[in-house]
Design a protein around this nucleic acid. Structure first.
Lengths: 233, 233
DNA sequence: GGCGTTTGTAACGTTATGGTCACAATTTCA
DNA sequence: TGAAATTGTGACCATAACGTTACAAACGCC
């Protein structure tokens, strides 16, 4: 299991300590920050998998950072959990409005926090341990890392598998080659964008079995990139 | 894997919470107690597989409970891990003298704790009731720690046996070398990941008998690790 | 202590995979 | 229609990933 990193943004040391402890127990890699300026640069530098964001922060409330993150393309998808006082219900609504993915009211139960983080990461990142994805008879089993058409396995390389896994967890949506590189290859690799084309080709080929032809599921979106759609037959 | 239960004896709620979280994540069944009187009765009633015992407890220090446990025949074999403050080194020595099986100093690294618990459990209860596993004529007998093809035994080393046992209890799922090291070797050992490859090789070889070839059961998952699958013939 | 067994690691052989390129095919738009 | 832009496709080959062997250290067992 790849280690996941969590960025805690809070100005209270006590809270940070508590969070760090809980998170380290749950095997997360923990980053900390006590102001939004520093937090922003850390997000860009260290690329955490999730952010725990306190509502009230010196030098600008947390919502500003949240807005900023959701504006930028590169950080748009980054899951954010808000930490708010129990009383401030409006904050929650406002926060979720701006794009927070979840919230926890202080004081919080550590187990709940961990549970929510896990749930969010499962949702946010495809195929961590998403068991089984199925489209129209095409089955992807994340646990065994195999693809099935009916009962017999489909052979393909690791990258093709990852690509298909990403597509099947994000169907009906067009992705640019750059986005696919980020999500499937990893954020900080440098390869030509055209490489995606080649792997798309290989994936399509693999999806043409003796039994059925699923290659139509991968559609090219001219001028943009590719899309996985069950409409493709 | 049969579920193991752990009894936490500590009067600090925060510590108990932390421990419980770590243990539950590691799939243990958790019991708690905050004083030695209650702890003693719980041990007799619930028969935990291991005890985490804080040193300083109200109503008598932890060492008293430890002494008591080691005096009684029925609880003599029960593994006990002491929790002590970092400073009190003497406590450790004294505790191990009295019969504690291991100790952890607070603050502790959760992973280390889990690793030590696993190690202790492995040492303490060899072959409790690991039953009989069978795949397609290949039989693993946990009690005698032997492998059979039909009627005649298959020869292999202990590590190969453990590996096969793990695989057969978790079939149809891909594991990384790191995961295999954690589960088969134990979380606290440091060996090269490539070592796994060699033992896989030895296991495969052992699974090629005169009668039948079961080596196909161990499949390599490129870019990930290995998988045990009955589809391998 | 001597012997066989087991284990981890290094070294080397082998293979599958990934990235890139060159060129073909297709679409777009003037 | 023709040229430019975009995508499809097969081939190449460096190399990462895996298989296999050899060996020395550690271990257990008379």
């Amino acid at each position: 299991m790849p280690e996941r990193s969590v960025l805690i943004v809070d100005d209270e040391t006590a809270i940070r300590d508590m969070l760090r402890m809980a998170l380290e127990i749950a095997d997360f890699n923990v980053l900390e920050s006590d102001n939004i300026q520093d937090a922003y640069t850390r997000i860009l530098d260290n690329k955490p998998d999730i952010v725990l964001l306190d509502w009230m922060l010196p030098g600008g409330s947390g919502i500003e950072l949240l807005r900023r993150l959701k504006r930028e393309e590169s950080t748009q998808e980054l899951p954010v959990i808000m930490l708010t006082a129990k009383t401030a219900e409006d904050n929650v609504i406002q926060g979720l409005d701006v794009g927070a993915d979840d919230y926890i009211t202080k004081p919080f139960a550590p187990r709940e926090l961990i549970a929510r983080i896990r749930a969010l990461l499962r949702r946010a990142t495809p195929g961590q341990d998403q068991g089984r994805l199925e489209v129209n008879g095409l089955v992807l089993d994340g646990e065994s890392r195999r693809i099935f058409v009916g009962d017999d396995p489909v052979d393909m390389g690791p990258t093709e598998f990852n690509l298909l896994q990403f597509f099947m967890s994000h169907p009906e949506r067009a992705y640019t080659r750059g986005q696919l590189l980020d999500h499937v290859w990893g954020a900080n690799v440098y390869v030509e964008e055209r490489t995606v084309d080649v792997h798309i080709r290989r994936l399509r080929k693999a999806l043409q079995t003796d039994m059925a032809d699923y290659s139509g599921l991968i559609q090219t979106v001219r001028g943009t990139g590719y899309r996985f759609s069950s409409r493709g037959l």
